[in-house]
Design a protein around this nucleic acid. Structure first.
Lengths: 158, 158
DNA sequence: CTCATTGCAAATAATTTGCATGTAA
DNA sequence: TTACATGCAAATTATTTGCAATGAG
C-alpha cells in the first residue's frame, strides 16, 4: 500500500515553541525533560505513555511515570503534541504537525491504523467553521471500518 | 444561530435493532433496561453515564451505576448508540442515527458544542476508505476552535 | 426451574497529586 | 538560595467485575 510521501517534521520549530513556552512560564530544562522530549520526537505517531516510558527508561531507568505524564501535558499545552484517544482507553500522543496534517483510518477488527491526508476535506472544514463563525484551531477526523486484510480473511472463527 | 433542521429519529427502528440483538443473544427485557433505554432515547445527544443515571433515578432511585454501564455497552454493541469521547475524560453516548449523521464543532474556550452535517465530507470519506480498501463503518469528525461568542469577548481576564 | 440480571462493593486501569528530596538558574 | 522538578506512593476518577439475591421466560 502506498503512503502519501511525508516530509520530515521541522523539529526545531517545535523545540523553539517549547523553549518559548518554558521561558515564559519560568520552567526549567532538566535531564529528564530533555530526554522525554527527544524520545517523543524520535517516536512514531500514536505513542502511549507506557511505550514512551519504556523507550525513555532504556536510556535512564530511573525516570518515573509521573514525569512522563507531566512532560506530555506540558508538550500538549504549548502546542507541540496532540493528545488522541482511539477506542482503547488510553491516551496517545503525536507531534502537532499542522503542516503535514493527517487523519486516521482505523480497522475495527485488528485495530491497525492508516494515516491519510485529504486537502479537500480541510477546505470543507474551514468552510463549515466559517459558516458557524468559529475560528478553527484543530480537528480530529477518524474513520472506522474493516481493513483489506480483515475483509479478505473469511470471518472470525467462532 | 440557525441549526440544520433535524427530523426526529426513528426510535422504533432502534428499538427493533435492540430487540433483535437481545433475542439472538437470549438476553432478557427487564424494568431497568427498558427504563434506561427509553431514558437514553429521550436524552439529548452527548449524555454521560452520570447524567443518564440521574434521569433514570428520578424515576427509579434504586438503579445502580453498573446497570447503566452495562446497558449502554449493550446499546453500543448492537449499533443503537455510539460512544464518544471529547476531551473531558468521560464517555458520552448518542443515538447512532446514521441517517441524519452529524459531526461536532467544539469551542476550546467555553466547551460549547455545535452539530453540523456536511454531505460533501461524507462523500470524500467513502472515497478515501475506498482508496485504502477499507469498508467504512462509522466515523468521528471533531473540529476544535473558538466560537463566535468567545471570539467577541475581549479575552480571558488574567 | 434455570440462567440472565441486578445492586453493591471491591477490583482495575489510567492518570493525578502530595510531599520530601534533588537541582537548575 | 529559591523555587521548580522529580520519584515514589497514595489518591482520584472512570469503568469493570465478582457475587449473592432477584426475577424473566
Amino acid at each position: 500500500m502506498i503512503q502519501p510521501q511525508k516530509s520530515p517534521p521541522d523539529l526545531d520549530h517545535f523545540r523553539s515553541l517549547l523553549a518559548t513556552h518554558m521561558a515564559r512560564k519560568g520552567l526549567r530544562s532538566t535531564d529528564q525533560r530533555r530526554l522525554i522530549v527527544e524520545t517523543f520526537f524520535a517516536s512514531n505517531d500514536h505513542v502511549s505513555i507506557e511505550q514512551l516510558l519504556a523507550s525513555v527508561r532504556s536510556r535512564d531507568p530511573k525516570v518515573g511515570y509521573a514525569t512522563v505524564y507531566r512532560t506530555l501535558k506540558l508538550l500538549t499545552e504549548c502546542g507541540v503534541a496532540y493528545e488522541r484517544r482511539f477506542g482503547d482507553g488510553l491516551a496517545r500522543y503525536e507531534l502537532a504537525d499542522d503542516v503535514t496534517h493527517h487523519d486516521h483510518l482505523i480497522c475495527v477488527e485488528c485495530a491497525s491504523i492508516v494515516e491519510f491526508e485529504e486537502p479537500r476535506i480541510e477546505v470543507l472544514q474551514e468552510e463549515i467553521a466559517g459558516r458557524y463563525g468559529f475560528e478553527l484551531r484543530s480537528h480530529k477526523h477518524e474513520m472506522y471500518g474493516v481493513c483489506p486484510a480483515c475483509r479478505a480473511r473469511p470471518r472470525k472463527r467462532g
